[in-house]
Amino acid sequence: MKKLCFYINSDWYFNLHWKERALAAKESGYEVHVVCKFEDVMIMSEFTSLGIKAHNSKMSEQSLNPLVIVKDLINSFRIIRAINPDILHCITIKPCIIGGLYAKFFKKKLVMSFVGLGRVFSSPSKKYKIIKRLVSGFYRWLSTKPDIFMIFEHESDRADLISITGIRPEKTIVIDGAGINTDEFKYLPDPANNTPVVLFASRLIWSKGLADLVKAKNLLQNKGVDFELLVAGITVKNDPDAIPHSVIEQWSNSKAIYWLGQRDDIKDLIGKCNIVALPSVYAEGVPRILIEAAAVGRPSIAYNTGGCSSIVINNLTGFIANKDIIDLADKLECLIKNKELRESLGHNAHLRVKSHFCSKYVVEKTLGIYRHLVE
């Protein structure tokens, strides 16, 4: 039996975005392992009950301290070496670097998933520019490995990495997002809310754009245009970009937002809202919340960053706003005031998910890469 090892930072992220692919690989005959920082005992227990072998890396996700990085590298090497996988599938930047080194040294077949190029490639700060140069050089060195395959969530990231690394295009593929089970996320008509409802659901970091939404809400209220802004979020620890809880409380107390905390009923929340907004300003992949919103038939508003425009097609499935509070507010106002437009864009969004982001296609493409590497 071939061994497939996923190596990733966070348990919640794998559970949300990758569990379906891991189970499909298991059903296809692979012995599936997941190496990540398990903070939620329930997730680890669920993986074990499903026949997925879970290993706690205890890795520090954000630290750039060289000593911490070396410790994470040694510990991860030890765990992966004990598994001895036939294929190592690394997801997000730190696992790609550490796992890439392991695969290079021990001559293992390597899959690297780029779920957006992130702050390292988009931040203007001097620190991240230095890191970008180092990471780019590493990817260039790693791309010469014969048994490597790179997965991207949208075409612009693939073009950027091909330019940076020189990797042959045939060793890359674009797989649109994480995939959605359209039997679970079914189309629902636009709800008849007395006051229109806008949903923001994401990690609570500044670069996801929640502050812009709060400012846009204030602008519209001054014009007499009212809506409820529901916020469901995952709080982030030890991240300099994290929104402090005191700020969330301030917005909540002033009624700028309705703070819902971390939720596991996102599908129901989407069904009860009229619009989903994610004005993210950094280069991520295709945000799952935008795919889920489209599947349910909700128009979304996003900035033109990362893979957002892969699912939010301007004037077809939602609106792409300029990175400007006034334009964001104008596009919100347009959707808030026009129920027929919301319904039309939402219907188009649902059809796009069925044709491009259905989980069946995502799983089939991913398993096809594994078969290609082991044959």
Score class of each variant (00 low, 15 high):
P66Y: 15
P196F: 03
S344Q: 13
L269Q: 07
S246T: 13
I266E: 13
T235K: 08
S45H: 05
D160N: 02
L213I: 09
F200Q: 14
E284C: 12
K171Q: 05
Q250K: 13
E343A: 15
P196L: 07
L161H: 01
A25M: 09
M59R: 11
S280Q: 04
M112V: 14
L142D: 06
C358G: 07
L161E: 02
A22I: 08
K132N: 14
H347I: 10
F77N: 06
A216S: 12
D72S: 12
D40F: 11
W251Y: 10
S10G: 00
K215N: 08
C96E: 08
L230H: 15
S60R: 10
A283N: 11
D160L: 06
Y258G: 03
T317E: 09
S57Q: 14
H33S: 08
Y30M: 12
T317R: 12
G99Y: 05
F105K: 12
S63L: 13
L134F: 12
I98R: 01
V32W: 01
A256L: 11
P244A: 08
E364M: 00
E20M: 00
G116C: 00
L23I: 06
D72L: 04
I131A: 04
E39T: 10
E61S: 10
I162D: 01
W12T: 11
P189H: 09
L73Q: 05
R352Y: 04
V362M: 06
G346T: 12
M112L: 14
N338I: 12
K267P: 00
D72P: 07
K145G: 04
L229I: 12
N15F: 15
V32F: 09
I43Q: 10
L88G: 02
I180S: 04
L328K: 01
E184W: 00
V276S: 14
W259S: 12
L260K: 10
I311G: 12
P124Q: 13
F319K: 07
K145E: 15
R371L: 10
N56I: 03
I313H: 03
K58D: 09
I80P: 01
I91G: 04
K129H: 07
K132F: 09
S359V: 14
N194G: 09
N238M: 06
K19T: 06
E61R: 15
K58I: 01
V231W: 01
Y139H: 11
I164M: 07
G271Q: 08
R21F: 00
P279S: 10
A178Q: 06
A294M: 15
V247T: 15
T366P: 03
L199R: 11
N348G: 11
D72N: 15
I164D: 02
S246F: 07
V34A: 12
V34M: 05
S254E: 15
E153W: 01
G233Q: 01
C273T: 15
H89T: 00
K208V: 04
V34C: 13
D324Q: 11
D147S: 06
D264Y: 07
G118Q: 12
S136E: 15
Y13I: 01
A232W: 03
S122W: 01
K171C: 01
R203H: 00
Q262I: 04
K365E: 15
V353E: 00
L67K: 15
T182C: 13
I175L: 05
Y128R: 14
